[in-house]
Amino acid sequence: MNARVNAREAILNSVRSALKRGPLDDTQRAALDARIPQHTRPAQDEDLVARFMRKFESRAGTVERVTGFDAVPAAVEAYRLGKGLPARAAVGAALKDLPWPADFEMNHGAAGIAEILSVSPAIAGIAETGSLMLAAGPGSPTTHNFVPDDHVVVLEASRIVGHFEEAWTILRARAEGMPRATNIISGPSRTADVEQTIQLGAHGPRRVHVILVG
């Protein structure tokens, strides 16, 4: 343990001597902690929902709009049947109270290797890049976002914000603090590692479908 403590001190001291100063005093530290970054946010002049959809679809994501949460199970059913998938899915427990069909088998736990469809709740949409923000938790296991081939994400239209900074504000406001994993998802998994040819479905979902509510 001692060696490690020493490494920490050695590195911090080396940083300080490179900066030609000792440790900062409390006033200086307080000033740094109080700093509020004001970086340029790229201008947007588009309706948030329209921009979100346009951007998300530009990266091979798909979006459909429904009027209310009650319509979500039917949309999932239609998607599932369209892809010829069996009547089961990994579904985040946050969505478990929707009016699902009786024969729809749901796994609210972590996704195992055999899971091929999942349905997750997004806590925000980000119009800037057309991205989804999902937070790990008992109602939304992270494995649901990456293991299945088909990932359906339920996003309330009112949760779409303009810029990333606004999404971070949502995270900071959470009573339960930062999620273990915050996943910003901008479409299906892809790779260009073989001769720069873009191929979808590298390791994560081959398709990401957004059901936009409201």
Binding site: H108, P138, P141, M178, S186, G204
Partner: peptide, 16 residues
């Protein structure tokens, strides 16, 4: 496609 923010290990009520 993915920007992932990881904060600590799994929480008591996390499922993965």
């Amino acid at each position: 496609t993915y920007t992932t923010i990881s904060t600590g290990p799994r929480h008591a009520d996390d499922l993965d």
